[in-house]
Simulated scan of single mutants.
Amino acid sequence: MNTFIAFYQNLGLALTLLVIGTFLLAGTIKGVIGLGLPTVAMGLLGLAMMPAQAAALLIIPATLTNVWQLAFGGHLQGLIKRLWPMLLAIFIGTGAGTLWIGMAGGHWVVRALGAALLLYALSGLFLPTLKVRPDSERWAGPVCGLLTGVITSATGVFVIPAVPYLQALGLNKDELVQALGLSFTVSTLALAAGLLWRGDLGGGELTASLLALIPAVLGMWLGQWLRQRISAPVFKRVFFVGLGALGAHLLISG
């Protein structure tokens, strides 16, 4: 408890409110469209703190919400059997990226985060859904996993290129939501291991991350309520536009 209080005392009131508001918004978006919590959290928190610190704060909210997402749907065993090469490559890529790049700080890391967000937004807005043939999954999955892992290790964002790849597999709605939860869980655990190895994830950061879990869960409940009342395609389009603007700001201002 002392480390929890000390961490947020060091952040100050303004940044503490930013953390709460960020995870409330990120959780709401995830509740509506099934993804976006770490992406939005890293983007907004990246405006006020270093990516390694922001990534440490999202570990517990991202892990628990993703485990919840992958636990329901009834397709977990089949998805693991189909996606394990990609999942293993994500873990390997994150580990290699931690050793090679890591979130050591500096303007280039912030710009890399902005570029990842902008690329993801543009792909969501303008690119048609790709199709991956079953006979191509053997090599495409591991390549996608390695790239996702390296990007995760540098920016804390693990949607590129994992999300477009999973969308291209032709999964039904329930399978896709569960596959996203599975991929994000592996990415979050790999990121946590990398941060722990580099000394960026200690007891204070983990304890402080518990605060972010509360608004994240509240946001997910709100998002699920909103999902029944608004058009998901319209919301998703607005989400990508806002995400692209945020990414462009980080890329330019660094």
Rank of each mutant, 00 (worst) to 15 (best):
V159I: 10
L24C: 01
Y165V: 08
L122S: 03
A154P: 07
L25I: 15
Y8C: 03
L176E: 04
I33Y: 02
A162W: 05
K81S: 06
L11G: 08
G114Y: 07
I252R: 13
M50N: 11
W108L: 15
F240E: 07
A55H: 03
W225V: 03
S253A: 14
W100V: 10
L13Q: 05
N10H: 15
G204K: 13
A192S: 02
R111W: 01
T28K: 10
K173A: 13
I230Y: 04
A104Q: 15
Q69R: 10
S153I: 06
G95M: 10
L18Y: 00
L99E: 00
S253E: 11
L37G: 00
L37S: 06
G106D: 03
L166K: 10
G114I: 02
I252M: 13
L250M: 09
T207N: 09
L117N: 05
A104S: 13
E175W: 07
E205H: 13
A62N: 15
G156K: 13
P38C: 11
E137A: 15
T98D: 00
T94Q: 04
M86G: 02
T148I: 02
C144L: 04
M1Q: 08
V67T: 03
L191N: 08
W100D: 08
L35A: 10
F239H: 07
L44E: 01
A115W: 07
V238I: 15
A245F: 03
L206K: 13
K131G: 04
S231I: 13
A121H: 04
T152R: 12
G106C: 10
M86H: 02
A48S: 13
A179N: 00
G223H: 10
V19C: 12
A208G: 11
E175Q: 15
A56N: 08
L250G: 06
D174N: 14
L130C: 07
A96V: 11
V163M: 09
A54F: 02
F239A: 08
L47S: 05
P161I: 03
L37D: 00
V109T: 12
K30L: 01
G254R: 12
G36M: 12
T152H: 08
R237C: 02
L218K: 08
K236T: 09
L243G: 01
G194T: 07
G244I: 09
L11S: 08
W84V: 05
T16R: 11
A192H: 07
F4L: 15
G105Q: 02
G21H: 00
L99C: 04
T39S: 09
V19Y: 02
F72G: 04
L17T: 03
Q77L: 13
V157S: 04
V217K: 07
